[in-house]
Simulated assay, not measured.
Amino acid sequence: MPLMPGAEPYHHHGGPVGVLVCHGFTGSPASMRPWAEAAAAEGLSVSLPLLPGHGTQWQDLNVTRWQDWYSTVEREFDLLAKDCEQVFLFALSMGGLLSLHLAAQKGAAVSGLVLVNPLVRMPGQSHRALPLVRHLVPSLPGIANDVAKPDVNEGGYTRTPLHAAHSMAQLTRLVQAELPQVTQPLLLFRSPQDHVVPAASSELLLSRISSTDVEEKLCERSFHVATLDHDAEMIFDGSLGFVRRLTTAAKG
């Protein structure tokens, strides 16, 4: 199955500071490419992988599980860590969930996280039916393109595959238990008008992590995919300033 336009992974070999960029559930690197390119322009080494099952057709995602997505994220992190003195994590939505799991596992090897509307808690109550419903219905309407800016396409699926969604729900429970192990600096961008991930997700994240260097910024003009929305430049500038601050501190 050929890749959707813009779903190609992106890599850039830059300086000794690396960034692993991770897209969200049913999305693709298209939602993160401008952010990745902004980091590359800053001289950072960048890895933006395509998560298994994404970027083709939703049926491909339905035969993958969170362990498949995480193995790709961990592999790309380890490759960056071999060549870089510091590695940061930039992520959107479920990419934030995977990044938090990685931060809990890797500890000090992760220098900091920049998360945009991270999924830490499944929205609503309907996910409680996933263990049964996924065997009856393969998919539900998609969640892609929650963007306030007109004529923007994040390269996501039009359907939400339920076996994969059930696996993601399992990962949320694991990461919720791991949050106290997250100690790295965190810059959190949250959209008050997010129609995919509720504010309760970020509230849970902030209440449980052990990080002491934490800042939250609101994307007032954007919906869920804020990396392609009106506040994208604020995210790019803020994240690069975050990296500069922490790399300068490490050298000092």
Rank of each mutant, 00 (worst) to 15 (best):
His224Pro: 02
Thr64Tyr: 13
Ala199Arg: 14
Leu179Asp: 06
Ala226Gly: 09
Arg190Tyr: 13
Gly6His: 07
Cys84His: 07
Trp35Ile: 14
Arg121Ser: 10
Ala41Asp: 15
Thr183Ser: 13
Leu20Phe: 10
Arg173Gln: 15
Glu76Asp: 15
Asp151Lys: 14
Gln193Ser: 07
Ala169Thr: 06
Gly18Phe: 15
Leu100Thr: 02
Asp237Gln: 12
Trp58Arg: 06
Ala108Phe: 00
Leu50Phe: 07
Met168Lys: 00
Gly53Glu: 10
Asp237Ala: 10
Gln125Ala: 10
Ile209Cys: 03
Val114Glu: 02
Leu188Thr: 07
Leu246Ala: 08
Leu130Cys: 10
Leu136Pro: 03
Gly124Cys: 09
Asp229Met: 02
Gly6Ala: 07
Thr158Leu: 12
Glu220Lys: 12
Asp146Glu: 02
Ser99Arg: 00
Thr183Gly: 03
Val137Ile: 15
Thr56Met: 06
Ala38Gln: 08
Leu50Pro: 06
Phe189Thr: 00
Leu205Cys: 03
Arg159Asn: 10
Ser126Gln: 11
Gly43Ala: 09
Pro150Met: 07
Gln86Gly: 01
Val182Glu: 04
Tyr10Glu: 00
Ser126Phe: 12
Arg134Asn: 05
Leu174Pro: 01
Pro29Asp: 09
Gly14His: 10
Met32Gln: 15
Leu79Asp: 12
Val110Leu: 09
Ser239Lys: 09
His11Arg: 13
